[in-house]
Nucleic acid binder design. Sequence first.
RNA 1: GGGUCUGUGGUCUAGCGGUUAUGACACCGCCCUUACACGGCGUUGAUCGAGGGUUCAAAUCCCUCCAGACCCA
Length: 830
Amino acid sequence: MPSPTLSEKRWSVDLEKKIQEEHNSDAATYSKRYGFKPDSGKEIFVIDTPPPYPSGTWHIGAVAQYSMIDVIARSQRLLGKEVYFPWGVDRNGINIEFTVEKNTKRKMKTYERGEFIELCRETIEEFTQAMRNTARRVGLSCDFEREYLTDAPDYRVVTQSIFVELFKKGTIIEDLRPNIYDPVEGTTIADAEVERLNRRTQLVDVKWETEDGQEVVISTTRPELICACGVVVVHPDDKRYAGLIGKKIKLPVPVTGRENFVEIQTHASVKSDFGSGVLMVCSFGDQNDVAIFRELGLTPFQAINLDGCMTEISGPLSGLRVKDARKEIIELLQQEEKIVNIEDREQEVPVSERGKNPVEIILLKEWYVRQTHIQGRMKELIEDIEFHPVRNKQFLLDWMDNISIDWPISRRRWYHTEIPIWYSENDDLIIVPPAGIYVQPWREMPPAGSRVLSRESRNDVGAYDELKDTLGVITGEEKVFDTWMDSSNSNLFVSGYLNQPEVFEKAFPTALRPQGKEIVRTWLYYTLLKSTLLLDKPGFQHVWIDGLGMDPWGRKMSKSLGNGIDADSVLECGAGGRTGSWKVKGPEKTVSLRANKIGSECFRLWKACDAQVGDDFHINPEEIEKKYFGVLTKLFNVARFASQFDVPSDLDTVPEGLHIEDKWIFSEFQSTMNEVESSWKNLDIYSATQALKAFGTGVLPSHYLEMVKSRLYDDDEMAAWTIHRVVRDFLSAFSPICPFFSHHISSTIYGKSSVEIDSFPQNAIPEVGLDTEHGNKLRSLTSIIQTFNSEVWSTKKENGISLNQPITGITIPSEIEEFSSVFTRMHKLE
RNA sequence: GGGUCUGUGGUCUAGCGGUUAUGACACCGCCCUUACACGGCGUUGAUCGAGGGUUCAAAUCCCUCCAGACCCA
């Protein structure tokens, strides 16, 4: 055999790593290939990639999703777009504060604020570096040079400027409202950050007494809140209590500074079969209580303060933490024999997503983004966005139907973007910085160019520099923004809002928002809300919502289940001869999984092939290797086989005299390529990959190569031209999925890397293209050819004839008579 | 409790009104054939979660139930 230019015997993870290192080592080439060049004149395609949150290791499901975003980025480049695939890292937030608290065993608020922020910054930087490495390792073609960090001044200033803009518009308001509050972490949180956990609680039946001495039993899981009771309600149809309605009932516990009688009223939300069927409504016991208070126009009582302790009104409980207060009140009630029964039961308790602390509803003055008024308009704008897959749009619409309160955006934490506001001494005026300057009001005075506004009307009163002396002692706002306030600017930021107006003009609405379905109600929703409020535009052209990475049994991976798989271990599996092994907790027992080689190319091929967008996918390294490494081996060998024959000097001009089988394979190839091209255009990775895989591991090697082998050995130039043209174009179309694999082969054989191709390969022979008569006729022969070949192979096998021995008595079907000389030679028919 | 989605050979998956129900992996058998044994060829193997219905015709549409996932209350 002539020596192949592709010298390696097969594809390997070590080869992959070597190529990857070369690929990343030369910054200039990297940036030429993948850097964003807004002035190139090509159509701009900006991807609003989800900035990952660094927290130790990167979740394999997220890495898999991310690698598919890369496939989209690369395929759009292949289609001739000017792609901006940004690399951003989300670094604001409570997670890193927790990490620092845990590492140093000290609560945030025991630090000096500046010192704590510095600790957070250092810690998150370490995590960020690990993430950058994984990103490179999985082959992301991000524009790493323009990395953005959401905790950097240039990002935070955009959040602050947008806040000021919305503030001036009156879209951001401050108000004293019941807020969901995490007393342990000392901060307000949004609806979207609340989750439910099952906890054991006690349901206590307490004896109450009406003004005329009638005994009423009320069940509650929160007896400590009796002091905040505003009304007692029964269902309007509940005959048992009809006589009580309108009467006054005495609180069974001592209270301070409030009436100790409340009225008995009716309310339709009462569940008559729960407990005794009588419900005490406390200010802010839960969301339903809040709703009833609002409906009945009652004045709320504040029973819990910001530290999570009981307030004065609770009388003897005053100053106790909620949990202790509950114990204490139960004891008190027991002493007075006012408890009829105590029952342990499972209850879903609302807790904060991050801290898992039971949350309370507390009346607080906070900043809000108004959102309930704009839902209709948002829905109209969303109509213009294409969703992939369409059905996942429902997640967003469902969430929007649930929006009933404004979005509280202020938080009492530190490692976040500061709310850019100062207050005048009398609190009537506020000072905001000019656009473009990042400020930290808790430690700085307003910068030059700041404006003074009326706190109430938002009217501009004048320049801060001139009014300085009339404002008295000014105070900076100490609160910060909810991190979603930052994250929901990502599309504006990457599209050039404020920083590059000329780019923004062309790049907005942002071409693509790819994300996981678990953050539809937060990231996607808030981003769309921003673009509606700020610009009255849809925000995106396409939204691509992927499913979740699950364990091999279809459960979400989580630390508590012990079923997680580390991304790096899969990407490095097979490097340096090391095998990978994983212990994963299944539903019944722990299972050991092993694989010999995976790497980024195989991993990407798996994700591209194995699950459609939007479907949850099971991650099992054993399966990834078994099903997809072989595909790479096969494709590599097809190319290696081709590489032993001279590459014709001109692959772009069709030579005269192609044989019928050459035209036939082009007819098949072109129909594959048409499907691939339109799939790439529709962001349909699955179909594109399936089509390429089927062709590259099926008809091409099993049938065409066998048919032309002898011609190739005889130095037939037509056959060589055909195979090289097909392999070259195949690699271009395949390179979005496996970029290093394609890059290596194409640059070795053809001297040009497939990752640099910026237009989809043209059909070599238009006359056998998709809708041509000639092409259709040739394609209709494919199954006949496959069947015929199979029959010959089985016949030889049945007769014990080896494949390279002659055989007699075979008739070639009349439909493929034109190929008779090919088959005669291929099968040695006599 | 509500919403959304999913349930197809041992495993994963395609199909989404008319197919002998794809394909891959695994299993079993045969084969070293001037690319590839990390390969090739071939054979087993599914009444499409269960039960009702609509239709000339259902894996595909409708209903009920069961199981799982995610989200929400």
